[in-house]
Amino acid sequence: MAIVATPARRRAGSRFRRRETWLFYAFVSPWIVGFVVFTAIPMIASLGLSFTDWDSFSTPRFIGFDNYLELFTEDPLFWPALGHTLYFAAVSVPLSLLIALFLANLLSRPMRGARFFRTVIYIPALVPLVASAMIFRWLLAPQTGPVNGFLALFGIEGPAWLLDEDWVIPAIILLSLWQVGAGTILLIAALQGVPPELYEAARIDGASRAQRFWRISVPLVTPILFFNLITGMIAAFQVFSQVYVLTDGTSGPSNASLMLVPYVYDNAFRYYHMGYASALAWVLFVIIMIFSVGVLRSSRGWVFYETEVRR
């Protein structure tokens, strides 16, 4: 059959095309509506609100950049909140990665009971944050908690953890390390995907076990490490539930565990400073973007994609 684009046929084709377009938008409509109502409009509105003084009941009052100025120059709590968040992210994210890598390396080789250990390591990662934070409140109780009880066996007097300015953030970090299993599982799968010939070749060349680990395993799983790093970092910047539950809805002793999202929450829903809270949320957004772009940029130097070699 010769395909000749007669005018009639072309018209039929465009009618078909139009129908397909119409159908596409029908199928996609749930997302379009959701995007407009729950994302696009709220995003514009919150940017607008960040330039106002608003208690959510009266009319918003436009105040220009005052919220941002106050935030950076006058607010006695913003910089501590940012500092605590960075402290938490800077310690918990790399430490989680290292522990996950260490455990995954132990578990990726065939061994009896591997399934049992994998399950045990993964279960804490399935525990909802509220439940895990609740049990850590008791684990870390200064007088009666098992953690300090265990330390006392070695003659160490444990800190007051959640009640101590210097130990409340380490306590939150400990909780995040307990849930290291999700990252571990991904890394086990990645390590098992490393071609065994590479290890064989390295062994013949006389590479030690440590060399094989750092020169073969680690480079080949950098894409997963990168994924864990970026998702872990974004989650760490947005830490909320565990802090709220651990400190019983406060910001810890003398605001020692005040973090950015809890501070947004306090401003919006405790003090009804909606404009100020919006400005805070935007600053948080920009901080997350800056760090994400930074990690993404750096990834070109350290993330190894196999396809690059084959090229």
Binding site: M43, A45, A268
Partner: peptide, 24 residues
């Protein structure tokens, strides 16, 4: 274009949308 927009919404932290959603 719509797919690109869809993917980019994954990067928006919930806190930025929180207050207008609450008002809505």
């Amino acid at each position: 274009l719509m797919f690109a927009v869809l993917l980019s919404t994954m990067m928006i932290p919930a806190e930025v949308l929180l207050i207008p959603q609450f008002i809505l």
